[in-house]
Simulated assay, not measured.
Amino acid sequence: MRYCALASGSNGNCYYIAEGKDAVLIDIGINTKHVEQRMANVGIDPASVKAIFITHEHTDHIRGVTVFCKRYQIPVYMTAGSYRGSRLKLPENLVRIIRGDDEIAVGSLTIRGIPKYHDAQEPCSFLVSNGDINIGVLTDIGRICDNIKHAIRQVDILLLEANYDEELLDTGSYPFFLKNRIRNGWGHLSNRMALETFLEYRTPRLQHLILGHLSGQNNKVELVQQAFSLYCKDIRLSVATRRQETELFDSQFFFVEKHEKHFVHQLCYQGTIVFPES
């Protein structure tokens, strides 16, 4: 499977996941021009996208949906609450209303909704699978519920929200009502909350952690890397940013690397490989 964050942050979110010729986008919160440019940067053909899945109706997740879906005639899957709250006027033939916990097949991919706590009308995150590898895109999470715990335990690749640093939020310029909205259990995960969640519910199958949806004013890439790097020695750690797409990752790389490490370990154990003394 191939995957990347085309945009991730409070100013716009868009995530690409593909298996062979089957590709989906989760959210389009940046304009179509920027989606197309960032796709071109990593060699993605926009016309290859078979479906768009929307997590909820906030602007940073739907800003570019209307133009993109019309231009490429791509169906848009979202809950009734999200569609109602979005006030989008999409062509009827491209709208697919789903329940928050539905499973949808798109070619060789299965996309499963994960209902969650967030200050939107009927929000859900998504887990995308090809039957062997599971990729979870878990952002905009007010607090950790059983659905989120279950999803994290199943994933091989996890894109997890690390929205704000608690000290930066406390001392920043946001008004009190906005600070409270962010941290009241219906808003977002802090770096600390994301780290605690990762440590408690990760399993040995997890190979790649991507932290995303960073706040522009209340977080920094350096703070996220500092918080997580100590605990990610055995997996790949990436941070998705607001202004630039990540590289186009290939899950095959991680599983080949894991197999090679296991093979070398077995050879060392059997005495076949001897490393020189330092």
Results as ranks from 00 to 15, higher is better:
Leu88Glu: 04
Arg112Gln: 15
Cys145Arg: 00
Ser8Lys: 07
Ser8Asn: 02
Asn13Val: 14
His265Phe: 08
Asp165Cys: 10
Gly9Ala: 08
Ala227Gln: 12
Thr66Met: 04
Tyr164Cys: 07
Asp22Gln: 05
Phe53Thr: 12
Cys145Phe: 03
Gly216His: 13
Thr66Trp: 09
Arg242Ile: 05
Ala162Cys: 11
Leu25Ala: 06
Lys21Tyr: 11
His265Thr: 12
Tyr269Leu: 14
Leu90Asn: 07
Val95Ile: 09
Glu167Ala: 10
Asn31Lys: 09
Phe263Trp: 14
Gln244His: 11
Leu90Gly: 09
Ser82Cys: 14
Leu94Trp: 01
Ala194Glu: 11
Ala120Phe: 00
Gly185Asp: 07
Asp250Cys: 07
Ile235Pro: 04
Phe228Gln: 07
Gln270Pro: 02
Ala105Arg: 14
Arg181Pro: 05
Ile182Asp: 02
Pro46Val: 13
Asp45Ser: 14
Arg38Tyr: 03
Asn41Trp: 04
Glu196Gln: 14
Glu277Cys: 08
Phe198Pro: 04
Pro204Leu: 09
Cys268His: 12
Tyr201Arg: 07
Gly216Trp: 11
Lys70Gly: 07
Gln207Asp: 15
Met39Ile: 08
Asn93Cys: 04
Tyr231Val: 06
Arg143Pro: 07
Asn218Thr: 11
Arg84His: 14
Gln217Cys: 08
Pro91Gly: 07
Leu159Gly: 03
Arg63Cys: 05
Phe255Pro: 04
Ala240Cys: 03
Arg99His: 15
Ile17Pro: 01
Arg243Gly: 11
Arg87Asn: 13
Ile141Arg: 02
Ile148Arg: 04
Arg181Gln: 14
Gln73Thr: 08
Asn11Phe: 12
Ile104Gln: 07
Arg181Asn: 14
His265Cys: 01
Thr246Arg: 04
Arg242Lys: 13
Ile44Ala: 04
Pro75Gln: 06
Leu169Glu: 05
Pro46Tyr: 04
Asn13Lys: 04
Pro204Gln: 03
His56Thr: 09
Arg192Pro: 02
Gly113Arg: 01
Ser10Ile: 15
Cys124Asn: 14
His34Glu: 15
Glu260Thr: 15
Leu195Cys: 01
Gln154Val: 02
Gln252Cys: 09
Ser129Leu: 00
Thr197Gln: 00
Ile44His: 01
Lys21Ile: 09
Gly271Lys: 03
Asp22Ala: 11
Glu247Pro: 06
Leu169Tyr: 05
Lys233Asn: 15
Val256Phe: 07
Val65Leu: 09
Lys89Arg: 11
Pro91Phe: 05
His56Tyr: 10
Ala105Gln: 12
Tyr15Val: 12
Arg205Gly: 03
Thr171Phe: 11
Asn41His: 12
